[in-house]
């Protein structure tokens, strides 16, 4: 079956087809799929479309139940869709965990395995090990450095870190620098060279 595609606009016949709402949904759909593709390509792979579709359908359902469109703003939509998407991702993660805990059902195909779909399982495994080591090292950092480094590892720039944590750019830079240095030292002690 041709899957519901990436250029979907979700429009309900039973809802007003305002240009604004359908465009919002279409845009949102594309944004969410791209976000999933970019952030979790290994374990989402071809699931992004369906996952986002489910999330958006849930948002539409909430909208329908509420009646009215008072909150039907792009801002509200985006937050609601993000929440629905994360709920769905968490549900899938849990399902995967249960599936792994269940064991003994090797004939049954595992529908969702965040750890496995990497083309190179060894590398994926090594990546997870380094990830664990990083988390372990972070727990030993003093809080301001830990916060700075965590956000830096999450992809935030130094100015963004400063804004989020209410620091001056100079302070943020300092804490990121020192924190990253601590992290390298800790990883080095664990035999991990970056």
């Amino acid at each position: 079956m041709r899957r519901l595609g990436r250029s979907d606009t979700v429009i309900s016949d039973s809802q007003k087809e305002t240009a604004g709402s359908s465009t919002d949904f279409a845009q949102l759909h594309r944004d969410l799929v791209r976000a999933v593709d970019r952030v979790c390509p290994r374990w989402m792979a071809d699931k992004a479309d369906d996952l986002v579709q489910v999330a958006l359908m849930r948002v539409m359902e909430i909208q329908r139940k509420k009646g009215g469109t008072a909150e039907f703003t792009p801002f509200y939509l985006r937050r609601a869709a993000f929440s629905a998407m994360i709920d769905e991702i968490r549900r899938l993660r849990r399902r995967q965990e249960v599936s792994l805990e269940g064991g003994g059902e090797e004939d049954e195909p595992v529908a969702f395995d965040p750890a496995a779909p990497s083309p190179d399982p060894e590398r994926a495994s090594a990546g997870r090990e380094v990830g664990r080591a990083i988390r372990d090292c972070l727990s030993g950092l003093v809080p301001p450095r830990r916060h700075a480094v965590t956000l830096n590892l999450q992809g935030h720039s130094v100015p963004e870190i400063g804004k989020l944590l209410g620091w001056t750019a100079k302070k943020a830079e300092n804490l990121v620098y020192r924190g990253m240095s601590d992290l390298r030292g800790c990883l080095g002690e664990k035999g991990i060279r970056s």
Binding site: V130, G131, L153, Q154
Partner: peptide
């Protein structure tokens, strides 16, 4: 490299009650 490793998918998901809600993360 560090960023990639930090966000490498975990094998096990934590109990959801321990995690901040999606709205909080947002």
């Amino acid at each position: 490299k560090l960023r990639a490793a930090f966000t490498a998918p975990a094998t096990a998901a934590p109990p959801p009650e321990d995690c901040p809600s999606p709205e909080t993360i947002w």
